[in-house]
C-alpha cells in the first residue's frame, strides 16, 4: 500500500474559545488534486497552516508521505511547497533574487539553483522581467512569482491557499492552467477555494468544509449524487418569501426550500414537472414571481443542501 501524500487525522485547532477546526480527517492520494471548498471562515487556511507546519494543532496529527509535521518538521517541510494566500515576497528584491533566495531556503545551491531559477522563470512567464523588482509588478505577476517560489525545489506536494482571490481573469486562467500542469508533472496538489467552479474544474477529490468540519468528501460526481442530482430553482418574488415557503415545500418533487433577500431557492428532482406547481402555489397566495433561474446541480447546490446556506454570502 502506498503512503498517502497527506494524511490528516482528527485535526483540531482552537483560538481561545473559538474552535476553528473541529476534528477533521482526510487523505490526499499521491498525484491528485485535492480541493478544500468552503466559504470564508470555514477553517481552510487554519487547516492548511497546520499542514504546512506554521500552526501547532490543538489535537490531531498530520503526516506528509508518512513524515509527521510535528515530530519531523524539516523532513516533512522539504516535501512541501507552500503558496501563501497573500503575496509573501521581498518587494525590494527582483523576481530572480526572490526565487534564488527561496530556492536557497529549500536547500538548493550553485548550478542546480541557477538552472531551476531559469526554469521557473520560464514556467511563470517572467523571464523578460526577472531583473525588475517585485514591487513594480502587477498583482497577477506577483502571484505568479509567489507560486514559482514554492516550486523551486520540485516539491512532491504543493499547497495553495486561495491563489486566485482578487486577481484578473487572465492571471486566474494562468494559475489554474499552472496547477493542472504541475499535477500532470506528478505533483500532488492541495488546493483551497471558495469558488466551486475552480474546485469542479481542477479536483480529483473535493472536501466541502464549513464551520470547522468536513461536511462531505468525494469526487465531483459523488458529491453531486449526494443531492440526488437535484436542480436548483431561484425565484425572485414581489412579496416576502415566508408567504410561499410552506406551500412550496409541500409540492411533490421538492426536497428543500430556503430563502435569502426575497429570493426563494427550491431544490427539485425535475424542474419541468415541478415549476408549474410552484407558480400555482404563488398564485394561491397572490404573490407574483418576477424572475426564474434554473441551475442544474453543482457544488453550490450540494453545499446548500448540506448546510442550508449559500456557499457565497
Amino acid at each position: 500500500m502506498t503512503l498517502p501524500a497527506i494524511q490528516v487525522t482528527q485535526l483540531e485547532k482552537a483560538f481561545g474559545a473559538l474552535q476553528a477546526v473541529k476534528g477533521i480527517t482526510f487523505e490526499v492520494a499521491p498525484g491528485e488534486i485535492f480541493s478544500l471548498l468552503g466559504p470564508n471562515g470555514a477553517g481552510k487556511s487554519t487547516t492548511i497552516s497546520i499542514i504546512s507546519g506554521l500552526l501547532a494543532p490543538t489535537a490531531g496529527e498530520v503526516a506528509i508521505f508518512g513524515r509527521s509535521i510535528l515530530r519531523e518538521p524539516n523532513a516533512a517541510k522539504a516535501m512541501l511547497g507552500v503558496v501563501p494566500q497573500d503575496i509573501a515576497l521581498y518587494p525590494d528584491l527582483s523576481a530572480r533574487e526572490n526565487l534564488v533566495f527561496w530556492g536557497k531556503m529549500y536547500g538548493l545551491r550553485g548550478a542546480e539553483l541557477k538552472h531551476r531559477v531559469d526554469e521557473i522563470l520560464a514556467v511563470i512567464g517572467l523571464t523578460d522581467r526577472q531583473k525588475d523588482r517585485v514591487s513594480t509588478f502587477s498583482g497577477g505577476m506577483k502571484r505568479r512569482v509567489n507560486i514559482g517560489a514554492a516550486l523551486m525545489h520540485r516539491p512532491s506536494v504543493v499547497i495553495m491557499d486561495e491563489p486566485t482571490v482578487g486577481i484578473d481573469p487572465q492571471s486566474r486562467r494562468h494559475i489554474l492552467d499552472n496547477v493542472k500542469d504541475l499535477n500532470r508533472q506528478g505533483m500532488t496538489v492541495l488546493y483551497t477555494t471558495h469558488y466551486m467552479e475552480e474546485a469542479a474544474e481542477l479536483s480529483h477529490h473535493i472536501a466541502i468544509m464549513d464551520e470547522g468540519v468536513i461536511v462531505a468528501c468525494g469526487t465531483h460526481d459523488e458529491l453531486i449524487r449526494l443531492v440526488g442530482e437535484q436542480t436548483r430553482i431561484d425565484l425572485r418574488l414581489n412579496a416576502e418569501a415566508e408567504k410561499v415557503m410552506a406551500g412550496m415545500s409541500a409540492v411533490k418533487g421538492v426536497s428543500k426550500v430556503t430563502s435569502l433577500d426575497g429570493t426563494v431557492t427550491v431544490l427539485v428532482d425535475d424542474s419541468n414537472r415541478v415549476l408549474p406547481r410552484l407558480f400555482e402555489v404563488a398564485a394561491q397566495v397572490s404573490v407574483r414571481i418576477l424572475s426564474v433561474d434554473i441551475q442544474e446541480p453543482n457544488l453550490e447546490t450540494v453545499f446548500l443542501h448540506l448546510t442550508g446556506r449559500a456557499l457565497r454570502d
Partner: peptide
C-alpha cells in the same frame, strides 16, 4: 507581510 511565515514553511 507574510514572508516570515513563509520562511517557517521551508525546512529552515
Amino acid at each position: 507581510n507574510g514572508t516570515l511565515a513563509r520562511l517557517y514553511t521551508t525546512p529552515t
